[in-house]
């Protein structure tokens, strides 16, 4: 029969089914006659069971996916606000591109008018101090500036709102 000193270090492997058939048989033969080692093996087994059932009670917070997405900058709110910004700048670019396209097309008479208009605006802006008679141009320039500021402020508000708002749940 094997001594306790020989068997004890093998118990962990034995319980995990990691021993070869010979060693397993030796351990079992010893356990059959040694109450002390048998108790130890039983206790180790019940420790393992206790650990398993304890582990099952541990649950990650339910909002973990959201936390991870947020930290990665991929939460729905952030994606939404980013999209909003894309849409704004895309429309801005589209507008500029349309004006440029219209201007560069020689056949379009509307484009020429637009060009003349734009040139007039620019010229008026430069000539503003001297061209007091063109008040309507000043009004128009002021109006577009106000519109630009308003739209930018609105965009900023919208971005902040979508970030703060709970869109996820």
């Amino acid at each position: 029969m094997q001594s306790c000193e020989f068997v004890e270090p093998m118990l962990s492997d034995y319980l995990d089914g990691q021993l070869g058939t010979d060693d397993e048989a030796r351990v079992e033969a010893h356990l059959a006659v040694c109450a002390r080692c048998r108790n130890l093996a039983d206790a180790l087994r019940s420790d393992e069971r206790a650990l398993v059932s304890w582990a099952r009670t541990l649950t990650a917070p339910a909002d973990m996916p959201l936390r991870v997405l947020k930290a990665l900058g991929l939460s729905r709110q952030e994606v939404q606000s980013r999209r909003l910004a894309y849409v704004y700048f895309a429309s801005l670019a589209l507008g500029v591109a349309l004006v440029l396209a219209a201007v560069s097309l020689p056949v379009a008479s509307a484009a020429t008018i637009l060009l003349h208009f734009a040139l007039a605006v620019v010229r008026a802006l430069f000539a503003l101090p001297w061209a007091v008679h063109a008040e309507w141009l000043v009004v128009l320039g002021g109006f577009s500036l106000v519109m630009l500021v308003l739209s930018l402020t609105g965009l900023r508000r919208a971005l902040r709102w979508t970030r703060r708002g709970v869109v996820w749940r």
Binding site: A55, L58, T59, A60, M64, P65, L66, V68, L69, L72, L74, S75, R76, V79
Partner: peptide, 18 residues
């Protein structure tokens, strides 16, 4: 892909947390 990331976190969060 946020949806894929969300699903993976959901599938593995217990493992990682424990």
């Amino acid at each position: 892909d946020p949806q894929a990331i969300e699903t993976i976190v959901r599938n593995y969060q217990s493992f990682v947390y424990r």
